[in-house]
């Protein structure tokens, strides 16, 4: 089942006199349960593409359909609500709310969705447990390591029960051990819970683990490779 359909999308930035064709005629589909990496050198358009997928930015031309819903048809206020209900975000620099504890950071997004307190607490707890932070519920971000913060960010991204999670260079600021733990957690969530993850990344560790690798260059898709999985018994 297709979660995301990208149809001939272009994104052109008109800054002063220089036109930047950041995304150039990209067409891609993503299915439920994918674990995909978008790779490419700096300036290849990975982040722009991710922003377009996340409804943070709108394409200059072309269509992006999420579960059949055309993002460009939504007003900006509807778009925010759409993001809240459908898309989980993990950012390169974690971006947790510094004044809230891990538990509150995860619960916050559900509060925005008006989920009642009891359900919020239960889900928060189980998510933080899933990312291996069941004992750090009451820690504020400043008391957590980078890897731990990014795991809280993953828990937060999942809290809203999104259709997919977009992760923009999630391991860029982590050491290899923390990056490995984080990737394993995400891979496990993907495998067991069928959660769709799409990364933009430079990181060979992420690329190695991804089951689909899309390579961009100058805003164009130059390769889209689905790997044979050895570590996933269900995906044969």
């Amino acid at each position: 089942m297709k979660v995301i359909e990208i149809k001939d999308v272009n994104k052109i930035y008109n800054s002063t006199e220089i036109k930047v064709h950041a995304v150039n005629g990209v067409s891609l589909d993503f299915d439920q349960g994918e674990f995909a990496a978008i790779v490419g050198p700096s300036g290849s358009g990975k982040t722009t593409l991710l922003n377009l997928l996340g409804g943070l930015d709108l394409p200059t031309s072309g269509k992006i359909l999420i579960d059949g819903e055309d993002l460009s048809k939504l007003k900006s206020s509807q778009l925010i609500d759409f993001r809240l209900r459908n898309i989980g975000f993990v950012f390169q620099s974690y971006n947790l709310i510094p004044v809230l504890t891990a538990e509150e950071n995860v619960g916050f997004i559900m509060a925005l969705q008006k989920i009642d307190r009891k359900e919020r607490e239960e889900r928060t707890w189980s998510l933080l447990k899933a990312v291996g932070l069941g004992d750090r519920l009451n820690s504020r971000p400043a008391k957590l390591s980078g890897g731990q913060q990014q795991r809280v960010a993953v828990a937060r991204a999942l809290a809203s029960r999104p259709k997919f999670v977009l992760a923009d260079e999630p391991t860029a600021n982590l050491d290899s051990k923390a990056a490995k733990t984080l990737l394993e957690i995400m891979e496990k969530l993907n495998r067991e819970e069928k959660i769709t993850f799409i990364f933009s990344t430079h990181d060979p560790r992420v690329v190695k683990m991804a089951r689909r690798v899309i390579t961009l260059e100058d805003g164009k898709v130059i390769s889209d490779e689905v790997k044979k999985q050895s570590n996933d018994p269900e995906n044969g």
Partner: peptide, 16 residues
């Protein structure tokens, strides 16, 4: 700036 941008990104609407 960054934090507020993040809040908007993850779905905190303008009113909030």
């Amino acid at each position: 700036t960054k934090e507020i941008g993040m809040l908007a990104a993850i779905g905190m609407n303008r009113r909030r």
